[in-house]
Design a protein around this nucleic acid. Structure first.
Lengths: 175, 175
DNA sequence: TATTGTTATACTCTATAACTATA
DNA sequence: TATAGTTATAGAGTATAACAATA
């Protein structure tokens, strides 16, 4: 399985990572490093780096927490938006979530195969489909939301309740 | 590939009452939405969602800002870590950055082709390589760092200087 | 036996282009 | 013409497995 987990779930209060800068400079590192004192240099100041690591962690925890229902983050987001806005076209969903419409086709194929979503011919535009959750889809989504909430608690445990809220506030402009 | 299409496009006209939920004023959203008032429902409370959108934005800005030198975030992170820790093995770099060692092989291939990095046989372990930046690689990295700093200013402009710093603090446990 | 670098495979995701049937 | 959905392709990125050389 995954090896990603560099910090176990408990690690909450991590004291600032003391990395120990370039004191090594003179000679090469001997190989077989434990790998703990490898400096990241400029990377520590890049939001993109920490955000990428964080996103990876979140993604993996989400997948693990929803493994029993076999739902991935993107599938969850698609079902949630359709559930809250029945009748949307594929283009509208794709645009809203920032997913390529070509990719949404396959996502919907798999959700339709599992009878969670149905594509209903639009009455007004014969090119497009009105997307709906099936009865089964609605029931399933309710369960997914409960599991997703559990995942969200893992996030709070990991970075702290307050920090999670602050994060949501800071990044609200990306919703 | 499988044929998914069970909704024939022709079937349109049937007045059959399309199951319509109760959210929207009486009827489904008319297609061709502007797409501005589509609610995200539970997604707005998920850190993973906003983080994913943010990460996507950051990634794209990084790529755009460093387009002239044709360097992507992962390549930048690899060169930065090697630059700050000359002589590291591939395993050590892979572990430190959370990259699969199989993938690092290809990343290093491309960086070596461009003469930014060299794999030097380890003196102590004939299985492994000591990684170094070439002279050219060091000069190039200095330029990459200047461009990356410019990218970082874009991030600050986008979410605010204070917020960016707070974000780095909150996610410091992921470095 | 275990580890390092390597090759290979598969699946996800992002980014395009092009085709069709409509509008 | 332009747009919605679809198909196809290509390249990153992630996750494995297996192999040769070496420890």
């Amino acid at each position: 399985m995954a090896i990603k987990q560099q910090t176990s779930r408990k690690a909450a209060g991590t004291g600032a990572a003391i990395r120990r800068p370039q004191t090594r400079a003179a000679n090469d590192r001997t190989l077989g490093d434990a790998g703990d004192d490898i400096g990241l240099d400029a990377l520590v100041g890049h939001a993109g780096y920490v955000v990428r690591r964080f996103q990876l962690w979140i993604f993996q925890d989400f997948v693990k927490t929803l493994a029993t229902v076999d739902i991935r983050p993107t599938q969850y987001s698609v079902m949630t938006v359709i559930g809250a806005n029945p009748g949307l076209s594929q283009m509208a969903v794709a645009k809203r979530l920032g997913i390529e419409r070509a990719r949404l086709v396959h996502l919907l194929d798999s959700l339709e195969e599992r009878a969670f979503v149905s594509r209903i011919p639009s009455a007004t535009d014969r090119r497009s489909h009105a997307l709906h959750l099936t009865g089964r889809g609605k029931t399933a989504l309710a369960q997914f939301k409960r599991l997703a909430a559990e995942h969200e608690r893992h996030v709070a445990d990991k970075i702290g309740k307050e920090n999670r809220e602050q994060l949501l506030r800071i990044l609200a402009c990306f919703t």
